[in-house]
Write a protein that binds this DNA or RNA. Structure first.
Lengths: 216, 216
DNA sequence: CCTCCATCTTGACGTTGACTAGATGCGGTT
DNA sequence: AACCGCATCTAGTCAACGTCAAGATGGAGG
């Protein structure tokens, strides 16, 4: 979790109310501020100046820690991928059912969608393409973690389908990822709010495990 | 296609080089300009002022036709949904294979992905959520058209699976849409560029028809 | 105690979306 | 043919933005 006890002590010290020229842990404070703004006001309200104001520093302070707005967005996306990976791992561990493999897959899928619905602006940012600096190693590592959590629950299903070849296995991983990612994206885009789709309540993620295991 | 011969005549007349105070068809000119900017320079370069400059009018002119930036984006997304619907209809019509239903479904899916890959910024805009004005009826109608093209190719497959109930059928439609939409989004986000996914060439959209028809 | 330098502030510049007031000229009316 | 209403477009302005440059501050190591 990149926990820095010294920095945190200084940070909480400042949080207690003591204003000082040197913040102590401005970088983390700005990330927190950014996450809050993203959650409460959306992506358009997330500006370097707004984050600085929320952290109680001058408008140009963020530049020293993130270089540019892209840097701040990259830091936020990194945290987001880490949180997503945690959610997926947690859901997989808690999954319960008569078919454990299938239960873990479906539970992970639902967790993916739940994460997107709970953090729509953040989710969008994670997959916003050119807005992020993918040369930043920590971002790539966090994204790999999340991807790894997903492939881990697909692997047993793939084996039971007889998908031993690397290509076949990766095609299944990609199928599952596309499925949950597409559903998540449609959900937070409001595309699932069509009246004819809501006559039986809000749409739920169609389970993929049973489909993949049909006829096996 | 909302073809307005009179407006077009004036528009082309202006295009011929004659500068006049009244443009003649500024609205369409601004949409064209917006599409070009989106394609060549990306979403961040798409500003009201840039579109105005490309159309050769003053910086405040777009406001009279679109009200705000949101209005221009909405107009662009409307055109985009219409084009997507056309692409899907075309792909379905041209599809060819031993199983026509399956061929049409897979061809439509590939067309969806091809559209996204060919127009990444536009595709992102179409599903950008709060950036668009969904109270605009034309936008909703265009989106419904595209959605209708997709459900049309899913319906035969659903019937062959015995999905006669409305809920079951809609779940399948949603499954297919999630699949192609998620893959498209991952593709244009660069998430499919992972080295371990490209050892057998760039990933292709996993066919969904054979999966849905397995064991039928 | 003193110096170094990362950290933070202040001020400025160019660009943006949005608003206002005024100029223009097309299309319908007389 | 002359007129005029009004949609269309221009010009000017404002606050907010990202970014840069220059200076102030104060903690860490000698």
């Amino acid at each position: 979790m990149n926990f820095d006890a010294t920095a945190l002590r200084r940070y909480t010290h400042v949080m207690a109310g003591k204003d000082r020229y040197h913040h102590g842990d401005l970088r983390n404070a700005l990330v927190d501020a950014g996450l809050q703004i993203l959650e409460t006001e959306g992506i358009h309200a997330l500006t370097l100046r707004a984050a600085a104001a929320r952290a109680g520093v001058s408008h140009a302070a963020p530049a020293h820690h993130f270089g540019s707005l892209k840097g701040l967005l990259t830091a936020l996306a990194t945290v987001a991928f880490q949180r997503l990976a945690d959610c997926l791992a947690d859901a997989s561990a808690r999954a319960d059912g008569s078919d454990p493999d299938a239960a873990r897959l479906d539970a992970s899928g639902r967790a993916y969608v739940r994460f997107a619905r709970a953090n729509p602006a953040l989710f969008r940012l994670m997959f916003s393409g050119a807005d992020l600096d993918w040369t930043e190693p920590s971002l790539g590592a966090a994204a790999e973690d999340a991807w790894g959590q997903l492939t881990a629950v697909v692997a047993p299903i793939a084996l039971r389908r007889g998908a031993v070849a690397r290509d076949t296995r990766q095609a299944l991983e990609l199928l599952v990822w596309s499925h949950v990612h597409g559903f998540s994206h449609l959900a937070i885009s409001g595309q699932l709010a069509k009246p004819d789709l809501n006559q039986s309540g809000p749409p739920e993620l169609p389970g993929i495990a049973s489909l993949l295991l049909a006829g096996v």
